[in-house]
């Protein structure tokens, strides 16, 4: 569980304006919450705050509260937070420990620091390696991996810790379609296990399939927060600096020409778009003279 209550945060350096403003939102266990917003809208700061990186490591002024698994983030030491919340940073390169020589050792690094028993550790590492598709690269140096592979390594390192809350900042930015679906497949499985997942993601199509809830950030504040279909289909999305799905745009434009049944919600997935447009192209022709 992640709970923000009227949380405002300002970094100690850089721009004096708050990076997050009066954030109130909740992510429940066993759900996936997607966060979208323009560049600089506060997505990365939000991730840093949930994981304790801010204010613990960056410093900064805050008011209000953020609780993870019932514990206030600001008042809980990082070492303790690390057992309940995992952060996958946007730039996977910066997440490599630099202290280990192979992918397998890198995946075990966090567990070693928690003094997890050797057999348990070995079992978990092999399991996670398979989950993120890195088994074949187990003995490679983390620095020899491609950007996409490093991204999967970063995700694996966090999964190995089995946190109750996981935060992923643009986890698919360097992955192709197959790799991205795999990551979201992992998130779906985490959700089933009761993990609270918070994911910053530009690609709305991935959120449309997996997220239960979507939050839009604009200039550090929550502009929208609700069920995925409602938020992603919201016509104000472009005003918030977020590009709508092509399915949604096509349906909205089609509706202007009577080519979309307006009693249907605007589609945010391939399946709902195909259903809606199939209905349009297969409707019974209305002879011009019979129109009311």
């Amino acid at each position: 569980m992640i709970e923000f209550k009227d949380f405002t945060f300002t970094y100690p350096t850089g721009r004096p304006a708050p990076a997050l403003r009066s954030i109130t939102m909740t992510v429940r266990p066993g759900t996936i919450c997607g966060v979208v917003g323009a560049d600089g809208s506060g997505k990365t700061t939000l991730a840093a705050v949930v994981s304790g990186v801010s204010p613990h490591l960056t410093g900064g002024e805050f008011s209000g509260s953020v609780e993870v698994c019932g514990r206030p983030v600001a008042g809980t030491p990082m070492a303790e937070l690390a057992t309940s919340v995992g952060l996958v940073r946007q730039d996977p390169f910066s997440q490599i420990s630099g202290a280990r020589f192979t992918v397998r050792e890198e995946l075990a690094f966090g567990l070693e620091n928690l003094a997890v028993e050797r057999d348990v550790m070995r079992h978990r590492v092999e399991h996670v390696m398979a989950d993120v598709g890195l088994s074949e690269l187990a003995d490679r140096s983390p620095y020899e991996l491609s950007g996409g592979q490093q991204q999967r390594l970063a995700i694996g390192s966090v999964l190995a810790m089995r946190p109750a809350v996981i935060v992923l900042d643009e986890p698919t930015s360097q992955l192709d379609a197959e790799g991205s679906r795999r990551v979201f497949g992992i998130l779906d499985a985490l959700k089933e296990r009761g993990v609270a997942v918070l994911v910053m993601e530009h690609r709305l199509e991935l959120l449309a399939r997996s997220a239960d809830q979507v939050v839009v950030l604009e200039d550090g504040a929550v502009a929208a927060d609700g069920p995925t279909r409602e938020v992603l289909g919201d016509p104000r999305l472009p005003e918030w600096g977020v590009g709508p799905l092509q399915y949604t745009t096509a349906a909205r434009r089609a509706a202007e020409h009577g080519l979309w049944d307006e009693s249907r919600p605007l589609p945010v997935t391939l399946e709902t778009a195909a259903d809606g447009f199939h209905q349009v192209t297969h409707r019974i022709p209305i002879p011009a003279g019979d129109q009311p």
């Binding site: 020409h257 349009v280 192209t281 011009a288 129109q291």
Partner: peptide, 13 residues
């Protein structure tokens, strides 16, 4: 949209 128009039977005005 142009493909959709072509494939849709007699569009009401």
């Amino acid at each position: 949209l142009s493909e959709l128009r072509e494939r849709t039977p007699s569009v009401p005005a």
